[in-house]
Every structure is written in C-alpha cells, then in structure tokens.
Nucleic acid binder design. Structure first.
Length: 411
RNA sequence: GGGGAGGUUCCCGAGCGGUCAAAGGGGUCAGACUGUAAAUCUGAUGGCUCAGCCUUCACAGGUUCGAAUCCUGUUCUCCCCA
C-alpha cells in the first residue's frame, strides 16, 4: 500500500531536492545510485548535518542547509542533527583566518538550547534525530582520541587551505584545530551517515568523514555542500560583522534588513532561502529589482512569521523608508528631572537613550543629523527646555524617540 | 635549548623620546545622491562638566622635565637553527 511507504516522491524529486543550490555533490552518480536503492527498498537515507553551538545565535546563512534538510525530510528521509557540543569546544577552523578561542563546557551548554530552538524554526524536530556528539566523545578517553589521531597525517591535514594560508602568513594554527576535522568525520561513522550536508567551507571536514567511514568499512557518505551567502554588505555573513539577519529577527527586522541587500545577491538568496521554482526566480530577477527584493523579503519573512506579519512589515517599510513617514511605534520617554546636570542637547540625547555617549550625541548634532520636532539642531550645547508637549527627537534616519512631559508623580 | 621578529585605538596596519588620542585602509555613524539598495562623493569616528581635562598603544615596574616610542621582568604569537 502506498500509504505505508516511508519515502514519497519520484527519483527526480529526490535528486532535485539534493541538487537545488548545491555547490558540490560528491559524488553525483553515487548519490543517484543510493537514492534509487533507497526508493526501491523504501528505506529513508540517513542525512547528517552538524551544528556547533559556538555562538549564541543562528542567522539566515545557517538556514540554507536547514531548508534543504526540510525538503529532504518532507520526502521522507531521516535527518540526523548533530549538536556539536564536543566539537564546539575545539573550535572549527573552517573559514577562519584566526586561531579560535576554546569554548568552555558552560558556554557551549548555554548555547545549546537556543540552537535547537532556532533550528526548529525551519526543521520539524519531532521527526528529526538529535544527538550531541559529546555523547560519544566524552566516553572515548585518551586512548580513543589517540586512535583517532592516527588516522591522518600532518601532511594530509595541512593540505587544507585555511591551514595553508595561516601557515603561509605566519599565523598561529593550534594543534587542537587538527582534531576538529577528525571529530566531525568521526561523527559520520557514529551515525552511519549516508549523506552529509555542509557549507562549502566544510568540504575538508566532510571529506574526512568519507575517509574515516571507508576505514571502518562503511560506505562513504555522499557530500552536498551549500554556498555561504554573503551578508547584507557583501562580506561573508557573520554575527561579528553585524551584517547577518538572525533567525529570531522579527518580521520587521527581517524585511528592513533584506531590503538593504545588494541587487547582485538576490539570485542566490532566492535560490537558497526560498522554495520558489527556479523559473519563477529567473522571472522575478528580470523585473524591477525593487519588486524582486520586496518579494524576497516577503518570502523569507513570511516563512518565519507568516504572510500577514510579512505584509505588515512590508507596508511599514514602504511607509517609513520609501515615503519617509514616521514609524508606527516610536519609543516614548518621559522627561525625568534626573536627566543630567545639564540639559544640553547632546547630553539629553544620551539620557533619552538615542545615543550611547555624549560625544556621539555631540557629533550627531554637529553633523546635522539631529532633529527636534523636525527642526535640524546645530548646537550640541543648546539647552533644551523641559517639554510641555510631546517632542519628537530624531537622530539620523532611523532613530526616533518621543520625549513626553514628566510623568505625574507616583502616589 | 639557541637566535631573531613581533603584540598599537572595533578590525587590519603605520608610528619608534616631545608637534600622538596616535597616519592610511576597512567597518560604523552622519550628510548628499538613489529604486529600498549597491556603487560613488563629503564629514565624523576614546571619554567627559569640551578652546580644557581624563583614560588608551600586551602586563608590571624603571629611566626621563616628558614614553606607544628607551631599560628590566612577565606573558602571548611568529620565524630560523637544534
């Protein structure tokens, strides 16, 4: 009976799901063979994906493989999500031009929960097997680790481009970093992965998985790499560059951020972060970039927050940014007698929370970026009177606060 | 173990006794332009009770009227030799 089958879709459906937006498939023929077999036996493939809880938040870049996993999950495959609590302590050298600080167990544990919660925004965790790799590494002991290190030579290890670069530039490479690819590879052996997904920067680690599986008489996993998307400013997306869109961002944040994306990146984002058919994407890209981008924002923020919230955010964007209207909700602050010893505008801006420091406030005013009830103020030392009526204070284009008269004394 | 080179402001990187809150670039912020961008142009970019003052140049001491710059020790990184 068809209804009892675990796998849905045709061979082509499966291959298309694996292929969409993939940078590399190692290797394609092997994949096809295994998919055929899986379909014939109605045996879901074990698809591995690892996330290191090394930073507290996931961003849209991380969502790319998650979307692919979701597609595969929908076709009936078995997803094994590895939470790399052991590997996180080592620190992945992938794409790193710097020695990574070693995380403590506490830091890792703190990130762990937020990670799975955020993955759940894309994946159906009910149907996902989640394992922590500390569950096998912790019990491995010195001997086990030592065994693992005998599986590769230094020459093989330093073939890796990031190591090459750092060694060439006279930058430090930690010995612990050599452990990382071995550990990630070992994960594949432990979970008997048929396929592993990862970003293009993971290629080396993924290949180590194949090597270790072969050494342990397992069929080497098929590798699917997904591209790393650039952040909003064109550099690699990263929290520390401040160019990332977080998975937990509100519909408004997502929409506003996505509209800042440069035109050139739209194609990749459409392909990777929406499930629109490729022909439709091509069509959108033919049209006006603004409309295409609006659609992109609607798709992505709709995926996380629902069409309604996405539409509201889009509307807010049009109103506030395109038509330069005031935002719908402006933070309000009551005049407080405790506001600085001086009421000078620069100080007030800080007291009210619009800027971090008085100096920043001073600069903003000097540069003509501060409006007091729509009037540009030029003197940072000008003493502003306690308002009798709400006053709209604006710093730059995006920061607003409404200053209200002092709140009535509490009784 | 021996020898050499280094650790500079958010990042990269100049500075090598005063003229240094410290060149230049990146980022960021503000302004102009725009399609919402991107690119480009302009300016700003330690803090403060701001024509002055205070805190920064790995850390701790020292020399000097005066140190990011010199000396000593500590610590971290890289390179070469063993």
């Amino acid at each position: 009976m068809a209804s009892s089958r675990q796998l849905g879709g045709t061979l082509e459906d499966h291959l298309a799901a694996f292929r969409r937006g993939a940078v590399e498939l190692i290797d394609e023929r092997e994949l096809e063979k295994r998919v055929r077999q899986a379909l014939a036996d109605d045996q879901p493939m074990r698809i591995k994906f690892g996330m290191d809880p090394s930073s507290p938040d996931l961003h849209l870049g991380h969502a790319i493989p998650l979307f692919k996993l979701r597609d595969l999950q929908a076709l009936g495959h078995h997803i094994v999500l590895i939470v790399g609590d052991a590997t996180a302590m080592v620190g992945d050298p992938s794409g790193r031009s710097k020695l990574r600080p070693v995380l403590t167990r506490e830091q890792v544990a703190a990130n762990l929960e937020t990670y799975t919660n955020q993955a759940a925004l894309v994946l159906d965790l009910e149907r996902t097997e989640i394992v922590r790799n500390a569950s096998w590494f912790d019990g491995m002991g010195f001997e086990g680790i030592l065994q693992l290190t005998t599986r590769m030579t230094v020459a093989q290890m330093i073939e890796r481009d990031t190591f090459q670069e750092r060694l060439g530039a006279g930058e430090p490479v930690g010995i612990n970093e050599f452990l990382y690819p071995l550990m990630q590879g070992w994960d594949s052996v432990e979970v008997r992965a048929d396929v592993e997904l990862g970003g293009t920067d993971q290629l080396f680690n993924l290949l180590v998985g194949r090597r270790l599986q072969e050494q342990d008489s397992q069929r080497p996993q098929v590798i699917v790499t997904t591209p790393l998307v650039n952040g909003l400013d064109g550099r690699k997306m990263s929290k520390s560059y401040g160019n990332a869109v977080g998975l937990t961002a509100s519909a408004r944040e997502m929409t506003f951020d996505l509209m800042r994306l440069d035109d050139e990146s739209m194609g990749v984002w459409f392909l990777q972060l929406t499930r629109l058919p490729e022909e439709q994407i091509a069509e959108l890209l033919e049209g006006h970039p603004r409309l295409a981008k609006a659609r992109l924002a609607a798709e992505i923020s709709g995926c996380f927050h629902g069409a309604e919230a996405a539409a509201a955010a889009a509307e807010a964007f049009n109103r506030e940014v395109r038509d330069k209207q005031l935002p719908a909700d402006i933070p309000e602050v009551h005049w407080d007698p405790a506001f600085g010893s001086t009421r000078a505008l620069a100080n007030l801006l800080k007291d009210v929370g619009l800027v971090q420091t008085t100096s920043e406030g001073r600069r903003a005013v000097d540069q003509g970026g501060v409006r007091w009830n729509a009037e540009v103020q030029k003197d940072p030392r000008c003493e502003m009177p306690e308002p009798n009526e709400p006053v709209l204070i604006q710093v730059g284009k995006k920061r607003f606060t409404r200053l209200l008269p002092a709140a009535p004394a509490e009784s």
